[in-house]
Structure formats: C-alpha cells, structure tokens
C-alpha cells in the first residue's frame, strides 16, 4: 500500500516536470531581470518623487508606497501583483492538468481500473500539486535571494522568504480551489475559468475596494489581503496569515475529494 501511495503522487509529478521547469524559468527570469534594474533605479530619485505626487489611494492600490526603498521596489514591481498572480495561474493550470484535463481526456481510466481507491488517486494528485508549487516557490525564492545579493539590493532575507512563501500559499489556495471544482466537474475549461477568475477577482477586491471608504472593510474577504495585506516585505508576516491560506486550501482539497468519490468518472 505504501509504494502505491507514493506512486500516486510521484507518478503525476513526473508528468508535470516540464511545466514545472517552464514556470520556474519564466518566473525566475522575471524576478532576475526586475532586480537587475535596482542599481539604476536606486540612483534616480525622479521616479520616487513622481510617485509621491500621486493620490494616496492610488499609491496604496498599486502597492507603490516607498517605491524608492528596496522593499517598496520589490513590492511594486513583483510581489504586489504580477508574481502572486502568475503563481496563482500556474497553480490553477497545474491543478487542472493533474485532474480535470486528465480525466476529460480519458487518461485517468488506466489508473482508476487498478486496485486503488478514488480518494487516494485524487489525494495523490493534490499532494503532487502541493509539491509542484513548493518547488516553484523555492526556485523563485532562490533566484530572488541570489539576485538581491548580486546587485546589492539590501533587504532582510527572512522578509523575502516570508513574502515568497505567502505567494506560494496564496497560489496553493487557488490551485486547491481548482481541485475542488475538478472533483465535482471534469470540465477543464470550467476549472480554469473559475480558478483564474477568482484569483483575479480576489486581487481586484484587495486592490480597488480600499479606494472607497464604504467598501474598504470588504477588502478583507480577499485571500490576497490575508496573504500580502500586512506588507510582508516591510513587516514580518504574522503566523495567522499562513494558517489563513493553508486551512482553506486543505478544506478545498477535501471538498474536491468528496466530489470525486461520489460521481461518475468521465469517459474519453
């Protein structure tokens, strides 16, 4: 039983190897190229002054506060939006590729006709997603830390670790949301649409609602707020933020398993 449990996670992970390498190189390059601009940016005070002219709401919405500092530079260019969003998209795509897309193509049938349970197959694939994301997160973190050191961008490494890990957990939450949908419905297009729409919607809620005094309290419903609302590059993130992402992620995965054991497996 042990060998088969390991195989149910390792097997799918092996098949996702190429996409993992692709996303790691893409996001790593984004981080490295962005950080490479830091020395030039640090020298010119013009941009910081220009940003200071913007309304306070806009600065907050686009994460531009303290743009001239290392933390503000990384937040505004990478960790306010683009890196967590791309990681979320990667997670949703990977989750879909491990579950709904494989089932829809009829490629799960070979495994489901073996002496394994539906739940162990689905749990194995969810674990594969988590490991896949952990490796992606680790590679982004590695590139970030090495790039920082290379160009002399001085920032507390623990805050960088915390920020990238929170981005990884945020992506895991959207990935497990895709898993939950796939558990109940083997339609890749629906899984992708719901996963990405909620990831982007969550960002818009976190970024735009604070612009209105009336709507501002509601921005707290967005997981983006839970992950990055405390500005983790400046203030070391509180422990509850990790739990606030991890607990719903596990719950969503369980929900997906509950669906998958109850319904028909889709034929090719």
């Amino acid at each position: 039983m042990k060998g088969s449990a390991v195989e149910l996670a390792i097997g799918p992970l092996r098949q996702m190897r190429r996409s993992l390498i692709g996303w790691s190189i893409g996001l790593g390059a984004l981080v490295a190229v962005t950080v490479a601009f830091w020395p030039a940016f640090r020298g010119s005070s013009g941009i910081s002054e220009a940003i200071d002219q913007l309304p306070a709401g806009v600065i907050e919405a686009f994460g531009l506060a303290g743009f001239g500092t290392p933390a503000g530079f990384l937040r505004g260019n990478l960790y306010e939006f683009i890196v967590p969003l791309l990681m979320a998209v990667a997670a949703v795509a990977a989750a879909n590729g491990l579950t709904a897309a494989e089932e829809d193509a009829g490629r799960l049938e070979t495994y489901l006709s073996q002496p394994i349970s539906r739940q162990s197959l689905f749990i194995g694939r969810t674990v594969a997603l988590a490991v896949w994301l952990a490796i992606l997160t680790a590679s982004i973190l590695l590139v970030q830390l090495v790039s920082d050191a290379a160009v002399g961008l001085q920032i507390d490494a623990m805050r960088v670790v915390s920020t990238v890990v929170l981005c990884g957990l945020l992506a895991l939450l959207f990935g497990t949301l895709a898993v939950a949908v796939a558990g109940w419905l083997a339609r890749p297009s629906v899984v992708l649409a719901i996963g990405i729409a909620i990831a982007v919607g969550g960002y818009l809620i976190a970024a735009l609602l604070p612009l209105s005094d009336v709507l501002k309290p509601w921005s707290g419903i967005s997981p983006w707020k839970w992950a990055l609302g405390g500005d983790p590059l400046v203030n070391l993130a509180e422990p509850w933020r990790y739990a606030a992402l991890l607990v719903p992620a596990v719950t969503l995965a369980a929900l997906g398993v509950a669906g998958f054991v109850r319904r028909d497996v889709r034929a090719a």
Binding site: G3, V6, L8, R14, G106, R107, E109, I116
Partner: peptide, 22 residues
Amino acid sequence: ELRLPERMTSRQLVTSVGRLRG
C-alpha cells in the same frame, strides 16, 4: 476508449501500474 497516460514510455507506464498493483 483507450487513452494512455502521456509523457512516459510504455515501460514506465507498466512500472507505474506495477507499483499500484504491488
């Protein structure tokens, strides 16, 4: 309706199924 798992050789698939079957 036969669709085999992709991105592996037949032998890898047989090995993988073998692990699931002990």
